[in-house]
Design a protein around this nucleic acid. Structure first.
Lengths: 73, 73
DNA sequence: AGTATTTTTATCATTTATGATAACTAGCCA
DNA sequence: TGGCTAGTTATCATAAATGATAAAAATACT
């Protein structure tokens, strides 16, 4: 497992946890972000090294701060 | 100016400020990160929407936390 | 002045994030 | 059983991040 993969997986988990804690469906978050639900699944699964702007959009729609997505990572 | 550009520029400034505060030459930081100096300049100028892993590498070599690069953004 | 160092800019190639669509799985319920 | 919802996985196209090189511009130093 590489550092990069570890980071991707950690961020995917963070997004998923925050999303579920707010009872938002994956497809609803995706729609709010103007992403396809498949691509949100891909990110939550840790299969993409997202850009900072993508993370900012997700943070905004989760109503959290960008730092909350990368804290302790 | 778009949200995306604003974010890129803010992060570029953040990297540059942290780097200069530690008296590290741009090319030295680039070398430590295994980036070309030209690409580090591009990022500091706000011309790229960096991936989270790229930012993590930069944070590591600046000896700061990843959150320090995205705080308040 | 000049010279070296550092930074910036431009450009092209390659890799990869993202966009987009479809098919599949699992769970739930009428 | 069938349909419905939520999530997953695979795949292809496109846009953009990154790799890489060269040259110009700025900065510092003697």
């Amino acid at each position: 497992m590489t550092d990069k993969q570890d980071l991707q997986i950690a961020i995917g988990k963070r997004v998923k946890e925050l999303r579920e804690s707010k009872n938002i469906a994956q497809q609803d978050l995706a729609a709010a972000c103007n992403f396809e639900k498949s691509n949100m699944a891909r990110l939550e699964a840790g299969n993409t090294n997202a850009t900072i702007y993508t993370l900012k959009i997700i943070a905004k729609n989760l109503k959290v701060e960008l730092v909350d997505l990368v804290k302790d990572l």
